[in-house]
């Protein structure tokens, strides 16, 4: 029984998250308390969900991309572009509070994010480039484009409807949580209720065999990069709405790395194949909790980076088969006897 629990893909991520939360509780006994103020729920746990929303979004998109054996380095840039274009449109409007203007802005920003995702999809799925290389292009150029949009300035907006997206409340909870929930449900539905999930895992595990089984890998790859772009675009809107401004230079900086980290912590292998959306969400929450903890303890927030570094090392070491072998002192291999014969020439 214990064996089965500890082998579950959520075991390690949840243990780490629980440990982090426990540390917080010990450090500050009121950590778990949630109070109602002005019809809204407040508390550290709510904050973690609220501030973690953009990262969870980006990480959900990244999970699907990584499951196909790819990677998307450009999400940070897409976050910046989408926030920049949305804020630009709103700030140019005569009446910034107009709902239609905000909807247009969101629509255009998401459209642009989809185009960015499509571009990555074309390079990876269409031209057959290595994902890390293909998305590097938009990662480099994208931030330039975002600055181009904002003309190198920080664009500020004073729009209530726009601010609602990232800083509004619904049913006592921050509105952004509902966006995340919706996207998570959509992703889960797409991958578990339709066959897309099976195709993604199939393409990620063995692209050639998938093609020969009749799977349209190209459209699968297009779909995941577009979805990832869309998630990043949404994250960009939430981030810029939260602070009512867009900074083409710094918005979404390091997001690609945090998102990849969340995916890896969640148990999805960077080699593609099996993926775990729930694991990713837990992974993103771990990262956000870590940041919150460090703020709370009173260490300069920049030092989060050092802790993150150790988290990356630890998670990777736990996932590394070689490391586990070295630790348990046994040469355990997950190979069937017959397979040895077949792999001999590899």
């Amino acid at each position: 029984m214990w064996n089965r629990i500890s082998k579950h893909h959520l075991f390690w991520p949840l243990t780490v998250l629980a440990a982090l939360l426990l540390f917080n509780l010990v450090y500050k006994p009121g950590f778990f308390s949630v109070r109602i103020q002005g019809g809204h729920l407040y508390g550290s746990l709510i904050d973690i969900l609220n501030y973690g929303a953009p990262l969870i979004l980006v990480a959900i998109g990244m999970t699907l991309v990584i499951a196909t054996g790819g990677i998307d380095l450009s999400v940070g840039s897409i976050v910046a572009i989408s926030g920049a274009i949305a804020c630009l449109i709103v700030s140019r409007a005569s009446d910034q509070h107009s709902l239609s203007i905000v909807l247009t802005a969101v629509g255009v920003a998401l459209g642009l994010a989809i185009i960015c995702g499509l571009w990555n999809g074309i390079l990876v799925g269409g031209a057959g480039m290595q994902a890390i290389i293909a998305t590097l292009i938009l990662m480099v150029a994208g931030r330039g484009i975002a600055q181009l949009v904002t003309n190198g300035q920080i664009v500020t907006v004073t729009s209530n409807p726009y601010k609602y997206i990232g800083a509004g409340w619904l049913a006592m909870l921050p509105f952004s949580i509902f966006i995340v929930a919706a996207v998570l449900l959509a992703a889960a539905w797409l991958t578990r209720r339709t066959a897309l999930g099976l195709f993604i895992e199939s393409v990620g595990s063995n692209a050639t065999a998938s093609r020969l089984a009749g799977i349209r890998s190209r459209s699968v790859i297009f779909a995941v990069y577009i979805f990832c772009g869309l998630c990043a675009g949404l994250a960009g809107i939430i981030l810029s709405s939260n602070v009512s401004s867009a900074d083409g230079n710094n918005a979404g900086l390091w997001y690609e790395l945090d998102a990849i980290l969340a995916v890896v912590i969640g148990g999805t292998s960077l080699n593609g194949g099996r993926f775990y959306l729930s694991g990713t969400v837990v992974g993103a929450l771990i990262i956000q909790t870590l940041t919150t903890t460090i703020y709370m303890v009173g260490v300069p927030p920049e030092i989060t980076l050092v802790v993150k570094a150790f988290v990356v090392f630890t998670v990777c070491l736990i996932q590394s088969e070689k490391f586990r072998m070295a630790m348990t002192g046994k040469g355990k291999r997950r190979r069937a006897p017959a397979e040895r014969e077949v792999t001999q020439h590899g």
């Binding site: 990849i260 960077l270 920049e302 980076l305 150790f310 990356v312 996932q319 590394s320």
Partner: peptide, 23 residues
């Protein structure tokens, strides 16, 4: 020795070095 992708390991190195600056 642990057969981990260079991308991830040097990413951690990147966090570590940058973080140490702030330390």
């Amino acid at each position: 020795y642990f057969n981990i992708q260079p991308f991830i390991v040097t990413l951690a190195g990147m966090f570590l070095a940058r973080g140490l600056c702030y330390v």
